[in-house]
């Protein structure tokens, strides 16, 4: 269900709407959606933090040829990377993913259920209602930046979304 909604919410029409979103989040430079060369980022969100570890999620739609997410960075954390959670013999395990395949035509949804962007060494506490910039580097589409709004600490989606 969430995947469907994310696909529908994928925003691919650049500047005009970006401008509106940027204005809405006041004084923030980057929009909360980004698009280039077939890659469309939407529905970014993060969980509020207490420790120096945080987590961010978003949907990545690829309207172009197959691509690959190769890196993530943000000025609010010393390290940012892709992680995958899995259950193995009743143990919740977390592994770093070197990269993430974004097949042509696919919508890849990062969610608390499996893959996520791990933020380590946060230099500030992420508080509900905050925004922070996140850069994603794709093999073909290059670097895309967007603003990530912070939801509650146990949120299952961005604020304002039904979960």
């Amino acid at each position: 269900m969430r995947r469907l909604r994310a696909a529908v919410a994928a925003i691919g029409f650049g500047l005009p709407l970006s401008g509106v979103l940027a204005a809405a989040s006041a004084s923030e430079a980057a929009p909360t959606a980004a698009s280039t060369a077939g890659i469309e980022l939407s529905r970014p969100w993060a969980r509020a933090t207490v420790t120096d570890t945080g987590v961010a999620f978003l949907s990545i739609h690829n309207a172009g040829p197959a691509d690959r997410l190769e890196g993530v960075s943000t000025p609010v954390a010393a390290r940012a990377g892709l992680h995958e959670m899995s259950m193995s013999n009743g143990m919740m395990e977390m592994r770093a993913l070197p990269s993430l395949s974004i097949p042509a035509g696919a919508t890849v949804v990062l969610s608390p259920d499996d893959r996520h962007i791990m933020l380590e060494g946060l230099n500030r506490r992420l508080r509900r209602g905050d925004n922070f910039p996140l850069k994603l580097r794709f093999q073909h589409a290059g670097v895309l930046e967007l603003q990530v709004p912070v939801a509650g600490p146990g949120a299952e989606g961005p604020d304002g979304a039904k979960h």
């Binding site: 969980r47 420790t51 987590v55 992680h83 959670m85 919740m92 977390m94 608390p112 259920d113 996520h116």
Partner: peptide, 9 residues
Amino acid sequence: THCPASCPT
């Protein structure tokens, strides 16, 4: 508390 995904859920 440094648990990113499963614990908050």
